[in-house]
Design a protein around this nucleic acid. Structure first.
Lengths: 239, 239
DNA sequence: CAGTGGTCTAGACCACTTA
DNA sequence: AAGTGGTCTAGACCACTGT
């Protein structure tokens, strides 16, 4: 829970107080000066925490006035950014089953080596999983992970959350990702492993995940039935 | 060009140097200490500029090593965040025509008042525009703007860029927006005003745009033909 | 070890809001 | 005028990377 960072701790404490209604929407946070006293720290440190709150949609800072608490309930929260399928569904309190259809160590073909920006024939875990929500198989997740970063992988881990294993057990440092969302014709595999319900197309979310050394170690295709797809994004205007 | 902010100027100068190849991908930026000397400023100010570069995908900071320049060309840049249709298309060098189908001042019905979080019957500009790309009408933009924020609106402005008018002429301060992306059945209006090419569904991007006082002043539905939709997102992991 | 970035401080000055 | 947030500074100490 407690990270070593002062401003990170303050951010987490304030954000959970907002979530728990200690600070209500449309009210003002205590002033930066007051927060300095409460957390016994300097103003720049408080400001780093407030900047994080602002970037994550918790508050709106207004010069001369204060920091206004935004209404999180209106934001279908935080589905944007680097959040795994499981984290999102858990936050919605959904009931999900995962079926692992494939878990193999393969050699990367040229198209895959291209996506992963790795040498051809690099050893790669290929994982195919279907996600069942409320009795319907509506998402097909296809993952490729470089074995150089992930030495071993078991069906048990894939049935749970790969992310939790990577960050928790392996201590991999994920730093950023690029997502691409498009709509594509459904493949035979989609029709076999999903309940497509007559839809001829699927929403394809490609995800390129980078480590702190900037190398790609995971490429994911998340294939969603059209009517079960939703993406929410919160963005601040950069002047 | 030159904002009053030192760190903003440094961010813009460094980012354009990266774009122009002064700093090449996979090379390191000068150290923070060196940048302090070059820009004649303190280290925290340099670090604010570098944080912006990092958040926007230009660099990856590595403790003990330095700031690595990322390969922007791989990022289909910056389609994420609060960028208007016109800005995106211009950045891709595309050839676009806009047809204004409707431009009326109406009273907000209940569903619209709900989206805009405004009183019912509030005076609202309703704008419907079709976007033609390479000869095909593939995007239908439906905008609603509160007249209290936008007193007048002409067909000429709508044919160009509403955003440029709002920020440039009216001086409106847009601060953040929430986007929702889903897939919906095409309506009769979609079929009438777009070249749907047989597709039964469209990608719907809802956009709620907020001002600095946090009020919503614009609600937009951007309806895309399935095969002409693409969304790119760059996200950093928040630990 | 020297050099890098990561965090934190105490204070300064400015711009904006409200009364 | 007093209180708020926005910017900037000069310095400190720490953690990590390389040689």
């Amino acid at each position: 829970m407690a990270t070593t960072n002062k401003y990170m701790n303050i951010f987490q404490e304030l954000s959970s107080e907002i979530k728990n209604g200690v600070f209500k929407p449309n009210a003002l946070l205590p002033s930066e000066h007051e927060l300095c006293e409460r957390f016994n720290t300097s103003r720049e440190t408080i400001r780093k925490a407030l900047t994080l709150l602002s970037q994550n949609g918790f508050i709106q800072k207004m010069q001369g006035k204060g920091s206004l608490v935004l209404d999180i309930s209106k934001m279908t929260f935080p589905v944007t950014g680097l959040v795994s399928f499981k984290e999102i569904q858990q936050s919605l309190g959904r009931d999900i089953q995962t079926t692992v259809h494939k878990l193999e160590l393969i050699e990367a073909e040229d198209w895959l080596a291209n996506q992963l920006e790795c040498p051809e024939h690099a050893l790669t875990w290929e994982v195919v999983r279907a996600r069942t929500i409320q009795g319907e198989r509506v998402i097909l997740d296809k993952d490729w992970l470089l074995q150089s970063s992930v030495p071993s992988l078991t069906e048990e881990i894939c049935g749970d959350s790969i992310y939790a294993y990577l960050e928790g057990q392996l201590g991999l440092n994920i730093s950023y990702a690029k997502k691409e969302i498009t709509v594509e014709p459904a493949t035979d595999e989609d029709r076999a492993l999903l309940d497509l319900d007559g839809y001829s197309h699927i929403v394809l979310v490609k995800n390129f995940v980078h480590l702190e050394d900037t190398s790609i170690f995971q490429y994911t295709e998340s294939r969603h039935r059209l009517d079960k797809f939703k993406f929410v994004d919160f963005a601040r205007r950069r002047k």
